[in-house]
Amino acid sequence: MGERLGPPTRGQVRCSRVAKVVVFACAAAASTALAAPPPRALAGAGVEVTREQVMLVPAPVVRKVEVLQVLTVSNRGPAASDLTVSVPAGASAVRAAVSRAGTGGNVAAPARSVSVAHGRIRLTNAVQAGASATVTVTYTVPFTSSDGAGIVLHLDYPVDMAYLYIPVGRFALSAPGLQLTTQTVTLSGLRFRVFSRPAVPAGSDWPVDVEVLPDAGPGATGADVKGLPVIGTDDTGRANSAQALGNLALAAFIFALGLVGVRRASRPTAGRPATTAEALYRSWEQVERLRAAGVLDETDYQRRREQLKQRLVAMRLAETREDA
């Protein structure tokens, strides 16, 4: 530690500040670079998924979700392309197959090779140039909570339309970006609710939560509570609507009261002059007071007092004529 000889000069302070800013900027840049995700290979040019169908079948007893993912892929590029499909973390029993469709008609053929590594399935030479193919991937994911599983779907290609299927009944599904409406279809005797999402961007993570709805189970209400009154606030639909209506009525009443009050207050009723002449005199007096207070400029003052005076004189003359 050096001995402090005196207060720093303005230049020293400035240098010190600049140094601090530079160090801060370097640190920020370095930390940003370190925190950034590793570069990822770009998806094959011209490859896109025209339809993604994901069937999610929960098996609560074994606490797993069976997933069947069917991708309809087309390749608009000039050369055959490999395909890469990500599977969620924790997925097991991963299998994949490709059936290719040529330009002259559907020609099913297996992909040359399928490899699975680090949660990614790589299908070599899966889709020919100018052709389309159907990729089928199956896997199983374990429950990540007591009642369900969270799965993150990820594709390196843009998806035109994605569909999620879940058996109707005891299961619930939630995911961002789903369309407003759902449909139901029957497949192999099992009814599925179909959720859809258009235009999934390439490389985006799409979290999907599947939940088993709780059951009353063996602890279903027994006879021991019969006869006991249900206490607590009435939350029935009718009570709810009645309260809502009452609240709206109150708001409307206050609104009407406010408007009536404003209208009445802004009408010169009470204290209203008995005659027009009296009203004109009061207005004139007001003009004089405003001028004295410096509120009215001279032009405005002259214009307004002349108007009032003319009207008063005209009234007086009219009165005289009537009297005559």
Binding site: L213, P214, D215, A216, G217, G219, A220, T221, G222, D224, V225, L228, P229, V230, I231, G232
Partner: peptide, 30 residues
Amino acid sequence: AGMGVEQGPGTRRLYANLVIRRDGQVLGLL
């Protein structure tokens, strides 16, 4: 005291029956 399920249009309401007591006296079900 147990649970019950009410099935509504597009909803499934799972409720619990709780017998409420205050100072030993039964007040009712929540």
